[in-house]
Design a protein around this nucleic acid. Structure first.
Lengths: 126, 126
DNA sequence: ATTTAAATAGTAATGATTACTATTATTAAC
DNA sequence: GTTAATAATAGTAATCATTACTATTTAAAT
């Protein structure tokens, strides 16, 4: 794989946000630097970067989101504001349980918890 | 909501399979009974049935799958054969943990575990 | 039987993503 | 530095899942 300023820019954009952006968001950001960059280039490089383990992809409902955090982790999604929060749950026990009970060898565990985030709770004891 | 033979058929199709079918699969099945049924009718009724709590929707990567099982549950997905297996993990602790650590009120927990199913393991002690 | 509006079939539109192709630009060899 | 080979790009068209639209059909209330 050889250098391209487009790929470098795309990688930078993903790595400089915590917002789990979509391809389109990244595309719009990128256009500010390279005005004629193509959406196809964005998609191609995002999947390339993912294959190389530089960035992570996950799906929120039915659209792809990209994440600089390549360590396996989980997500909290607020039903009020749509915000997605990264968390790390310890799922060693889950793997064991699944292997024992279902004879299933877990490779990847993805936990998405939807609910209400701190800022949008009906403040009780807060 | 009033009766329609299309909706009744669609409900039957979803409730008579364990295969977590896609809208298109359901559409093709339905055509065998009602040859001129429309794909739009399938989608409209599937989301209607879901709103009414009769069936469940979840997303596998980026396509919708439908499930007669409306009780919250989790999925094992085999990377070899693509089969999706229903399981029920006890996630009461997860909810508690998330509330304590992240002040996040969990409403729905979706765990998708991908890996290798029993039939496609490299048989060791099996 | 008549009326009313919900549901449908058929088709067009949308939005995300992928594929295609002529052109551009990186890099290796001279 | 120039040239050659070919990877990557821009721009556009195509695809796939899903939703929207509209004239027609049909359930069901009167």
């Amino acid at each position: 794989m050889r250098f391209s300023k487009q790929r470098e820019l795309i990688q930078d954009i993903v790595q400089r946000t915590n917002s789990h952006p979509t391809a389109n968001w990244i595309f719009n950001k990128a256009k500010k630097e390279i005005s004629n960059i193509s959406l196809g280039t964005v998609y191609r490089n995002l999947s390339q970067l993912n294959k190389d383990g530089v960035i992570n992809i996950f799906y929120d409902d039915n659209i792809a989101r990209y994440d600089w955090n390549t360590v396996a982790h989980d997500h909290l999604k607020c039903n009020k504001c749509g915000k997605i929060i990264d968390i790390k749950l310890h799922n060693r026990e889950l793997k064991k349980e699944v292997l024992k009970q279902y004879k299933f060898e877990a490779e990847n565990i993805e936990i998405t918890i939807s609910g209400i985030c701190e800022n949008h709770m009906n403040f009780k004891e807060k």
